[in-house]
Design a protein around this nucleic acid. Structure first.
Length: 261
DNA sequence: CCGGATGTTCACCT
DNA sequence: GAGGTGAACATCCG
């Protein structure tokens, strides 16, 4: 999916739908419904209500509903796109088709007046859930404090990158953001998480903030300085060294053997 | 044609 | 228990 930066864009787009009466819901794909709810249950829970608040935790978009209704949780997988009023919130998502095949609409909320919020996901990796367990996610990466980040990395011998991408420990970072962050911070993604010194934790925390800020302004997780070099034979944009390509935490990982230590 | 791609979950290993 | 691997989902791109 979209990583947290993209979901943040989706959240702001969805905010424009707050207050509109929900008159119908399409949930044509039972597989897309998570948490055991049936399509009928989801429809019944939403129709007649309105979204009253938009929130995000990590890569999970949360829309609270009126009249003590449930919270709608939306996940976007790798190719999920949110569309409101016929306009894609993001139209430059990589690895996602720009086509608008109606068969890919996995979930649609229709509002009074004919507008709609549509979740289109070609690969079906996302999902929709009523009252998702938000506590299964760690603190959002945009909010985590330095001391808390220190505790998160201190608690595991797993590779640093794997720990940072563990959504139960820290919510929001995906493959691209994590590679960019560690490249900026000059830290080897394969190092045991608990091996970081206090100074390195401080550096990691500072670069987490700037990485999210800079890439957020540029427009997404794919706008990092490392992005163009994330290919076989790519060279480090900082010092020209041939980048390492490894699998860490189950994901293809690019890092600079010279300045990431 | 084949391998991989911003993700999550699960079964199955070590 | 911790951590890793591969599969599944389905489409696009090089």
């Amino acid at each position: 999916m979209p990583e947290m930066l993209e979901v943040e864009v989706y959240r702001r787009a969805a905010a424009a739908s707050l207050g509109r009466p929900i008159v119908a819901v399409d949930a044509p794909d039972a597989w897309f419904l998570k948490g055991g709810a049936t399509a009928d249950q989801v429809v019944d829970a939403l129709v007649g209500r309105r979204f009253v608040a938009d929130r995000r935790r990590g890569k999970l978009l949360l829309l609270d509903t009126s009249d003590d209704g449930p919270t709608l949780g939306l996940r976007f997988g790798m190719t999920g796109v949110l569309e409101l009023d016929g306009v894609d919130a993001i139209d430059q998502l990589q690895y996602a088709s720009h086509r608008k095949d109606p068969a890919w609409e996995r979930f649609v909320v229709h509002f009074d007046g004919g507008t709609a919020l549509r979740l289109r996901d070609p690969r079906r990796l996302g999902g929709v859930e009523l009252d998702p367990d938000e506590e299964r996610l760690g603190p959002d990466a945009a909010d985590v404090g330095r001391a808390e980040l220190g505790r998160i990395v201190a608690g595991s011998e797993a590779p640093l990158k794997a720990r940072l991408m563990d959504q139960a420990r820290l919510a929001g970072l995906g493959n691209l953001l994590t590679d960019e962050l560690l490249w900026r911070a000059g830290l080897d993604p394969a190092r045991p998480a608990s091996s970081l010194s206090p100074a390195e934790v401080r550096r990691l925390h500072q670069h987490l903030g700037t990485t999210l800020e800079v890439l957020g302004e540029r427009g997404g997780s794919h706008t990092g300085d490392l992005q163009d070099a994330r290919r076989r034979g790519g060279a480090c944009p900082r010092d020209g060294a041939l980048l390492d390509r490894r699998t860490i935490g189950g994901r293809t990982t690019y890092s600079c053997p010279r300045h990431q230590r």
